[in-house]
Computed example of a mutant assay.
Amino acid sequence: MTTTWHPTGLLEGQPAKPYGIIILNQPINRNALNAVISHAVLLVCADGGGNRLMKYEEDTELRKRLPDAIVGDLDSLSIEAADYWKCKGVKIVRYADQYATDFTKSLRWMRQEWDKQKGEDAELDVVVMGGLGGRVDQGFSQIHHLYMVHQQPELLRGSIYLLSEQSLSFVLAVGENEVYINQKSFAENVGIIPVLGLTRITTSGLEWDVSDWPTEFGAQVSTSNHIRSDLVKITVGDKRPLLTFELANGLCAAEF
């Protein structure tokens, strides 16, 4: 079975499937958010993400898009931001469950809302605006969520992407993956990270392709490889690795 990916479409206003955006309580990569916000069918702020989006909205040079909801336990949403969004008619949804993160609460709300609009079998991709340049534990938490939600259809039916300061990252499928890209959206650097442990990969379309190559932490890992084709093929063994592309300069965060 072959899984196809079209990450360039997200960044160039031609998505292959409908997608929603979740804004985490992380510094926003404004250039990347500008590229994806206009075509999002749903926009959700995870708790303090509402503070971040308010600052984004206040910059009149940036595109404006009201969130469909602010979701979480609301311990990080400022009073100022809550009032700001309430005045604009934005839903503020409080979930008090301390055993779920604001990330998963936002995913659950988005999935339920899409079910209401399109039915339970309708796929919806998700773009998560996060950051990997701050606290290490928070960065690992975001990667953890990319893996976790694939096992929970009540949270995700579709693909999920992490759009951070310099990269677009997502979890490959077991088997053959075909990734269609336009190199205007990406710099040349690419990494294939064996987060779950030892797996074997075969690649084509990269500068240093490999065949049935074992990869795991503590041994050999494919980082800082280079894109050499608009179609990158990666065949994966039994454990799904993380694929991460470096964004082109115009999409990278202006500041960290």
Rank of each mutant, 00 (worst) to 15 (best):
M1I: 05
W5H: 12
H6F: 15
T8R: 03
E12T: 15
A16H: 13
P27Y: 03
N34M: 09
N34R: 15
V36P: 03
S38L: 12
V41Q: 07
L42S: 04
V44R: 01
A46L: 03
N51Q: 05
K55Q: 14
K55T: 12
Y56M: 06
E57D: 14
E58L: 14
R65N: 03
D68F: 00
D68T: 04
A69I: 09
A69P: 02
A69N: 05
I79Y: 00
D83F: 02
Y84D: 05
W85N: 03
C87K: 14
V90Q: 07
Y95E: 14
A96T: 15
D97N: 15
T104I: 13
S106R: 11
R108K: 15
E113I: 01
W114M: 08
W114I: 07
K116Y: 09
Q117D: 09
K118M: 15
G119I: 09
G119S: 09
E120Y: 12
E120W: 10
D121Y: 11
D125Q: 10
V126Q: 05
M129Y: 02
L132W: 00
R135G: 09
V136H: 13
S141K: 09
I143Y: 09
I143S: 08
H145M: 13
H145W: 07
Y147T: 11
M148C: 01
M148P: 00
M148V: 12
H150P: 00
L156I: 10
R157G: 01
G158W: 04
Y161M: 05
L163M: 08
E165T: 10
F170D: 06
F170P: 07
V171P: 08
A173E: 15
G175L: 08
I181S: 06
E188L: 10
E188Y: 10
V195L: 06
L196Q: 15
T199D: 08
T202Y: 08
T202K: 10
S204Q: 14
G205P: 07
L206P: 06
E207M: 12
D209R: 11
F217T: 11
A219W: 11
V221T: 13
T223K: 04
N225E: 12
V232D: 06
V236A: 02
D238E: 15
P241G: 04
T244Q: 09
F245Y: 13
E246L: 10
L251K: 07
L251H: 09
E255Y: 12
E255S: 14
